[in-house]
Design a binder for these strands. Sequence first.
DNA 1: AAAAATATACCGTCCAGATGGTATAGTTAA
DNA 2: TTAACTATACCATCTGGACGGTATATTTTT
Lengths: 178, 178
Amino acid sequence: MSRTSRKVEILHAASKIVSQKGIFNLTLEAVALEAGISKGGLLYHFPSKEELVKGMVEHLANNYREKIAGNASMDPVEKGKWIRAYVDVTFNQVYANKDMHSGLLAAKAVNSDLLDPIRELYTEWQSSIEDDGIDPVKATIIRLATDGIWLAELFDIYHIGDEKKDMVYKTLKEWVDE
Amino acid sequence: MSRTSRKVEILHAASKIVSQKGIFNLTLEAVALEAGISKGGLLYHFPSKEELVKGMVEHLANNYREKIAGNASMDPVEKGKWIRAYVDVTFNQVYANKDMHSGLLAAKAVNSDLLDPIRELYTEWQSSIEDDGIDPVKATIIRLATDGIWLAELFDIYHIGDEKKDMVYKTLKEWVDE
DNA sequence: AAAAATATACCGTCCAGATGGTATAGTTAA
DNA sequence: TTAACTATACCATCTGGACGGTATATTTTT
């Protein structure tokens, strides 16, 4: 247990650095400092920077997958449960999204192959969503719009206001049930 | 003329490096090599790496703005012309999109403030789109879905197939005219 | 018009500092 | 005692960018 939790602590420290100071400041020393550990200790857990980023991506991919699957499995209505889960989780889980932001940025910068777990996630979700009993094009557009919100937030290029965000959220959910 | 075109050549070289080799390989030496210039010559045109990235962002922001404005101004129908222009340009201008990708990634990595011109772009577009004679929530969702496509492509996390992309495109444009 | 001065557009080298990673010695817990 | 974990010292490499030059075009002065 101690091993696992230490690792997770380190991953959180790494995420924090990426989101607050940018990818270029994701140095081993900075991560060690933020995690309250020595550089040697950090390298004991993650033998290279690439392994560290790989760990970030895998961790967040697993979390996200579980969260969406859990949400879908608790939905009383079968039709459209996956797209509803995707929309709900993505709109409302702000904290998890920030992890996603950091992981994506770090992986894209360090080595694009590290994004594979996320690609798998998306492939899974896309097929669940298309096989969800509602019009697949409409479902895809709903998913894309949801992605548009969090990806624009990731880059800080456009932050939708709270009221407008709410209206978009409601409209998208209505479309699922139409 | 020679000054301007040299600068643009350098910016293209920088974009190419970012898109092909990632942000960590955007070094002054690599850009100089790709642009067929010496490091000293590069630094003559862009006195620091930050200035180089700033140049990338400003260049692509201006190009994009002109392209969308041009498209909107040539639309015979007033109602919905901005959202139509946004959808058309974003779906169809693949080359310009790649520049956008590189510029965003570089700016986000080097210094978030460099993204300001892109933020302005989005603010302008958003207000044009909302003041375009069609339901603003619907228009916003159409824009978000469009963003979702190119931002997912930016990260290589999800590439929509051509036929599906076409169907999404058609559906979005129908919604504009409904 | 000739000479002098200045500006523009480059080039290649050098270096301090930062960084990823190794080696190694020490500590704690089972 | 052993395995899990931590801390420190160290090294080789890379990078931004400062710097000193060169060549050519343009302007100013005489």
